[in-house]
């Protein structure tokens, strides 16, 4: 899970994920097209995203295609977001209680 957060903590890598979100299943050439990043940099970032399992790659004919893999993000949601929500709700309840007490 550390790898997922590290991979996401970089604007260039998030931009690559955004490009795959807009159009899934792109080749390296397509992903590089119109980006202000060298091909080497894109390759390196894709490697980090793939190691974090945020990008899946497959061979399709002679091409290597890249796909956005949201499964680890779903798992983070399952594991954490609900707990954070519970905390927030508890804080809001406490705030309400304090404010209403002052009105007494």
């Amino acid at each position: 899970m550390d790898e997922v957060f590290k991979a996401l903590a970089d604007a260039s890598r998030r931009a690559l994920l955004d490009r795959l979100h807009a159009r899934n299943g792109q080749t390296l050439n397509e992903l590089c097209d119109g980006l202000a990043m060298t091909r080497q940099a894109v390759t390196k970032h894709l490697g980090i995203l793939e190691a974090a399992n945020l990008v899946s790659t497959i061979r399709h004919g002679r091409e290597k295609l890249h796909y956005l893999n949201p499964v680890p993000i779903h798992q983070i949601g399952e594991r954490w977001i609900r707990k954070f929500e519970r905390g927030k709700l508890a804080a809001l309840s406490e705030l309400k209680r304090q404010l209403e007490k002052r009105d007494e």
Partner: peptide
Amino acid sequence: FKPAIVYTIYI
């Protein structure tokens, strides 16, 4: 057929 969705999980 071309893949439209590719998801990977480690188990």
